[in-house]
Amino acid sequence: QRITLKDYAMRFGQTKTAKDLGVYQSAINKAIHAGRKIFLTINADGSVYAEEVKDGEVKPFPS
């Protein structure tokens, strides 16, 4: 399943989102408010992988 960072954070909370991605909650808040195009893939085992689309390139998040 693929979902935006904002939607994932709204569904699970910023604290869990940060923990799942290995970053601080403040980084999640800042990324959402900056309007960054970050998409999360939720794997069947429950693990989460995030990618950011920037300038036409897709890069892992966090980099």
Rank of each mutant, 00 (worst) to 15 (best):
Q1R: 09
Q1L: 13
Q1T: 14
Q1W: 10
Q1D: 12
Q1F: 13
R2K: 13
R2A: 07
R2H: 07
R2D: 03
I3C: 08
I3R: 03
L5W: 01
L5Y: 01
K6I: 10
D7F: 04
Y8I: 01
A9T: 11
A9I: 14
A9H: 05
M10Y: 10
M10F: 11
R11F: 10
R11L: 13
R11S: 07
F12A: 03
F12I: 03
F12E: 06
G13L: 03
G13D: 02
G13P: 01
Q14L: 15
Q14Y: 15
T15R: 14
T15I: 13
T15S: 14
T15W: 14
T15F: 13
K16A: 07
K16V: 05
K16E: 04
T17K: 00
T17C: 07
T17W: 01
A18E: 03
A18H: 02
K19R: 11
K19L: 11
D20R: 06
G22Y: 04
G22P: 00
G22E: 05
G22F: 04
V23P: 02
Y24C: 15
Y24K: 15
Y24I: 12
Y24M: 14
Q25A: 14
Q25L: 10
Q25E: 15
Q25P: 14
S26G: 12
S26E: 12
A27I: 15
I28L: 08
I28E: 00
I28M: 04
N29W: 15
N29R: 15
K30V: 10
K30W: 09
K30P: 04
A31Q: 02
A31W: 12
A31I: 07
A31R: 01
I32Q: 03
I32P: 00
I32A: 02
H33G: 10
H33K: 08
A34L: 10
A34R: 09
A34W: 07
G35Y: 05
G35R: 10
G35E: 11
G35F: 06
G35A: 08
R36Y: 06
R36L: 12
R36K: 07
R36H: 06
K37P: 13
K37T: 13
K37Q: 15
K37S: 13
I38Q: 00
I38Y: 02
I38C: 01
F39K: 02
F39M: 07
F39H: 05
F39Y: 13
L40C: 09
L40M: 09
T41F: 11
T41Q: 08
N43C: 10
N43V: 08
N43L: 13
N43Q: 11
N43Y: 10
A44K: 11
A44D: 12
D45K: 04
D45R: 03
D45C: 05
G46P: 00
S47H: 08
S47T: 14
V48S: 03
V48R: 03
Y49H: 10
Y49M: 11
Y49F: 13
A50F: 02
A50S: 04
A50L: 03
E51T: 09
E51I: 10
E51S: 07
E52P: 01
E52W: 04
V53E: 15
V53T: 08
V53F: 13
V53D: 10
V53N: 09
K54E: 13
K54T: 14
D55V: 05
D55S: 08
D55N: 13
G56H: 09
G56C: 06
G56A: 07
E57W: 10
E57I: 13
E57F: 13
E57C: 11
V58W: 14
V58Q: 06
K59D: 04
K59R: 13
K59N: 09
P60D: 05
P60R: 11
P60L: 06
P60C: 06
F61A: 01
F61E: 02
F61P: 03
F61H: 02
P62G: 09
P62E: 05
S63C: 10
S63D: 13
S63E: 13
S63P: 12
